[in-house]
Design a protein around this nucleic acid. Sequence first.
DNA 1: AGGATCGTGTACTGTGTAGTACACACTACT
DNA 2: AGTAGTGTGTACTACACAGTACACGATCCT
Lengths: 116, 116
Amino acid sequence: MEFGSYVRDVRERRLNDDRSYSLRQVAGRVGLEPAYLSKIERDVTAPPSEETIGRLAEDLGEDRDLLLAMAGKVSNDLRQIIIRRAPLFADLLRQLKEAPDHAVLRIAREVRDGDW
Amino acid sequence: MEFGSYVRDVRERRLNDDRSYSLRQVAGRVGLEPAYLSKIERDVTAPPSEETIGRLAEDLGEDRDLLLAMAGKVSNDLRQIIIRRAPLFADLLRQLKEAPDHAVLRIAREVRDGDW
DNA sequence: AGGATCGTGTACTGTGTAGTACACACTACT
DNA sequence: AGTAGTGTGTACTACACAGTACACGATCCT
């Protein structure tokens, strides 16, 4: 699914039981021209900037990283984490490319529990 | 160190025992105008595109991911790995942010040895 | 019936990206 | 002494990015 159609779906679901989720009102809260948000939601134009996607995700109660991913972007803080130790993290990510979800999850859990 | 100065240092080191590493010849092999490479090496202009950095890294025998990182960029294939399973990898990376190098390396090794 | 709200069509703008093209002065051979 | 090669200054270009501004017709409310 495209970024825009997904945003539209989410917004319209919210709109069902909250009239403040009209395109115009969301655009107002997020700080965009309604015409621009309209074009975004119809995928007439490319997804907006990372900052705008962040505000949109917050207003719609969606996961910021997921929304960014649908826009083909990676959050700036993640980019910085990789860049700081580039060859190291590059290798790790390429190793993890084919690893199943539960393995990646297990690793994240182990690291969180601090057993290094 | 800035991207450009680093490239210049590397190139001049190569130039010491191989006259084919003049700015003009490298530019020729990599497919750039000499004036442009000159501006890049003096950090007068922003680092070039990912593709160009890749060709530069190859010609200079440098690590592609490292050079990209110095340019503030992340390789496209890594971005795709994250984007495919965005919230999952986002969480993992944030967990690993403070982990020491040897811990990250150990994880990469374990994954490579396929014990999941 | 009439104002408020709704989504959208069209035109325009400023900034950044990723370079090319050409001319110039300096140095190094031979 | 001449020519080949070196790095650099300046001007320019094409295209993408990230939007704003305004007008329009349709719908809802009361």
